[in-house]
Amino acid sequence: MERDEFIDALKREGFAEIVTVTHDAQGTLEDHAHPFEAKALILHGQLTLRTGDMERVYRMGDVFHLHANENHSERFGPDGVQYLVGRK
């Protein structure tokens, strides 16, 4: 999905806050949750996201979606990761 198309979709779905997030190479975020729903488009790099017993790798052009208060952990690829995320 392209950036502008993704932003339009976020707005239609009620995601009022849209930000770009960047994480350094090989970093991690241990189990945590956010008080908001998040839907994100990978712009650069790689993100491995674990929710429950499922783990999935996301690369440029992939979209991930997390519900509010959904516990998850994150690992960032060898080039780090940058994603555009809508929050509500």
Rank of each mutant, 00 (worst) to 15 (best):
H23Y: 08
D62C: 11
D31E: 12
N69P: 10
G80H: 08
R75F: 03
D31G: 13
T20N: 03
I7E: 10
G14P: 04
D4N: 12
H44C: 04
E37S: 08
F36P: 01
K88S: 13
F15K: 00
M60K: 14
V19Q: 09
A16Y: 02
F64P: 00
R75P: 00
F76K: 05
D31W: 10
I7C: 08
V81L: 11
D79I: 00
A68V: 12
E13Q: 11
H72S: 11
L10Y: 03
E74P: 02
V21M: 07
V19R: 07
G86R: 02
I18S: 09
D24H: 14
A40H: 04
V85N: 02
A9V: 02
L84F: 01
E70T: 08
G77C: 12
V57A: 11
G77Y: 14
Q46R: 15
H23K: 13
E30F: 09
G14T: 03
H72Q: 10
K11P: 06
K39R: 13
D62K: 11
F15E: 05
E55P: 01
E13G: 09
T51N: 11
R87Y: 12
H72A: 11
Y83N: 03
T20H: 01
V85H: 01
L47N: 01
P78N: 12
E2M: 10
D31S: 14
V85M: 13
K39H: 07
H65N: 06
T20V: 15
R12F: 06
S73Q: 10
M54S: 15
L29F: 05
V57Q: 09
